[in-house]
Every structure is written in structure tokens, then in C-alpha cells.
Design a protein around this nucleic acid. Structure first.
Length: 314
DNA sequence: AACACCGCCTGAGCGC
DNA sequence: TGCGCTCAGGCGGTGT
């Protein structure tokens, strides 16, 4: 499932193919994967299901999906990828914001190249010089958000926490001061820190020797230092490995990642800890399956040396 | 106000 | 072989 490293690898892999290309046409196969600023709350009627009459959803103009613009930038904040399109006549830039959710893929295809699996394709962009961009998402937890201006993008990203790749201890500590929720749950909250999902939350907590069930507000500043360093570390390692491919993730060219090969705890409940050999614990914290080592990550506060556990390079 | 919980969705993996 | 069940989880809405 795509978290920050996967979205960053996607961004980097698409960059050379999309920059400077013009969007000639757009085909949208499912209106409900797109959310526009004036769609009813909850998105394009998809959540109205079973709760009263579905809200009316207007047709989209192709330009809202970047048709007619030239792609000038691909930006990422947390797990979100923004594609910016510029008009020749100087109108404000259009923005298409992509969420991959659990199973979303954004693929660039050279002319004549076909996707091995063309099921669940929801949108296609034809480019000039010739090429295609394809959005597919079997489970449709992801989607496309249209934004009229760059300022709207900035406003949206302002509501998220700092990007996890560059997060430092003081803002995270301030955000969680007095919070009684489990630190694991707090790390999954995108308004607190943007880009961490279930995989890297577990991995970063393991690296920093912090039990996932500890109260977020109860961590010392030294522990916040260690934790934020561990978050940056696991994300950097994963980006260097091309992201983690557990099932669906591939980059813009269809390449799988190898980050999963070095996971210390995620998905390893019951297996021996790679550090101390004791069986890893597994349970639900913050409504998510969580895996940790009861020896390496004791529940009680421990003397923190500031040294990241198992800090090996890639 | 802060946090917990629900429902959306499909395919893999499992037991029988 | 095939069916039906469970599980995975990001995120926004709703409940407490």
C-alpha cells in the first residue's frame, strides 16, 4: 500500500515522462473517483449510497482534469501527489491531486505499450509528444481531486502535518503535547504528520525502541528526537529501495520495490525479532494491526540513549 | 475538542 | 475444483 516512499518513487519515476508534455485529451471511466471543490461533502456521491438520495453530481469539464494544459510540475506532500498544468494563455495553473489509497496506480505508457492488467482503469490522459498516463485503482480507496489553483493546493496541504521525510522533533512534540492517544495512532493521523502509514509507523517505532501503545503525550523530548530520526530513516531507506511492494504497488513504469525485504516488524507477527530473537507481538492499536517486539520496545519508559536501534544503512 | 469507530471496496488466501 | 468466509487499510463522515 502506497505510503510516502512509494508516492515519492512514483513522482520521481513519472517526472521525466510527464514534464513539459501537453495533455491532449482525457477519458474518464468513472465519475465517482473524481472529487471537485463543489461536489457534496464526502466526494462525488459515492458515500451517499444507502444514506438517503444520492446527491446530484455535475459533469466535469475536461480542463478540470488538466486537458489542454502543459504539465509543469509534480509535487508531493505526505502521500499525496499533485500534477500541475499550465495554460499557454497565462490563466492560473490547474492542479490534479492524486491519492493512491490502498491499490491505486498511476502509470506512464509509451505509444503502443499496453498494461498487462487493464482492469479497473478509471482515467486515461493522452499526451503530446505521444504517450499515455493511466490511473487504475481496483479497490477505489484512492481518487483524483481537482483544484482550480496552486493556492488551493497550498491551502489543502496546510491542513496536513509536516511532511514525514523532513519532520523534526519540536513540531511533532508540540502537536502531541498532552495527547493521551497511542503514539502509533498519532503517527497515522495525517493532520499530525503527513506520509506515515501502517508499515512505516511500526518500523519507525521499532527502530526507536518505543512501544506503539505508549501515550503520545508521555514521550520525552529525547524520545521524540529518536522517533523523528527513525521516521526519516525508514522512509529514506525505503525510497532508496524503490518503495515497498507488498501486493500492488508499482512505480510509474511498473517497477516493483524492494523495501519490504528489510522490514523488521511489519507483517511479521509471531516470527522472531531480527534483533533479539523473541517472537514478535501483534495486536490492534489505533484500529490497525500493529506488530512490535516486547523486549526491544518495552512499555515502560526507558533510559533513552538517542541511538537508533539497528541503525544500519541500506 | 479530542478521539474512537464505521463503511467504503476488491482480491488473496484459507478451510472445507 | 469451487465456494464462501475473513482480512487487508487510507480516509472522511459520524458518534461519543
Amino acid at each position: 500500500m502506497p505510503e510516502l516512499p512509494e508516492v515519492e518513487c512514483l513522482r520521481r519515476s513519472l517526472m521525466p515522462h510527464l514534464m513539459g508534455r501537453k495533455v491532449v485529451t482525457v477519458r474518464l471511466y468513472r465519475r465517482d473517483v473524481v472529487v471537485t471543490p463543489d461536489d457534496p461533502p464526502g466526494g462525488a456521491s459515492r458515500r451517499a449510497k444507502g444514506k438517503g438520495p444520492p446527491s446530484p453530481v455535475r459533469r466535469l469539464r475536461a480542463e478540470e482534469l488538466l486537458s489542454g494544459t502543459t504539465i509543469t510540475d509534480l509535487r508531493r506532500h505526505g502521500k499525496q501527489l499533485a500534477i500541475l498544468g499550465k495554460w499557454a494563455d497565462g490563466r492560473p495553473m490547474r492542479v490534479l491531486l492524486v491519492h493512491l489509497g490502498m491499490t491505486g496506480q498511476l502509470r506512464y505508457l509509451d505509444p503502443g505499450v499496453r498494461l498487462a492488467d487493464s482492469s479497473h482503469i478509471h482515467a486515461k490522459w493522452r499526451l503530446d509528444p505521444p504517450g499515455r498516463l493511466v490511473f487504475r485503482d481496483p479497490r477505489r480507496f484512492g481518487g483524483l481531486w481537482t483544484l482550480p489553483t496552486e493556492a488551493a493546493l497550498e491551502a489543502r496541504w496546510q491542513r496536513l502535518g509536516p511532511d514525514a521525510l523532513r519532520v523534526t522533533a519540536p513540531p511533532l512534540r508540540r502537536a502531541l503535547e498532552g495527547s493521551r492517544r497511542a503514539v502509533k495512532a498519532a503517527l497515522l493521523d495525517q493532520a499530525v504528520i503527513a506520509g506515515v502509514g501502517n508499515i512505516y509507523a511500526d518500523e519507525a517505532l521499532f527502530l526507536s525502541c518505543i512501544h506503539p501503545g505508549r501515550e503520545a503525550g508521555g514521550l520525552t523530548s529525547a524520545e521524540y528526537q529518536t522517533l523523528t530520526a527513525a521516521i526519516r530513516q525508514v522512509l529514506r531507506w525505503s525510497i532508496a529501495s524503490g518503495g515497498s511492494t507488498l501486493r500492488d504497488y508499482v512505480d510509474g513504469q511498473g517497477r516493483r520495490g524492494r523495501g519490504q525485504e528489510r522490514h523488521m516488524v511489519y507483517g511479521r507477527g509471531g516470527e522472531p525479532c531480527r534483533e533479539c530473537g523473541s517472537p514478535l507481538c501483534s495486536g490492534v492499536i489505533g484500529q490497525r494491526t500493529t506488530t512490535w517486539c516486547r523486549v526491544c520496545q518495552p512499555r515502560g519508559r526507558r533510559v533513552n540513549t538517542g541511538v537508533i536501534h539497528n541503525a544500519r544503512g541500506p
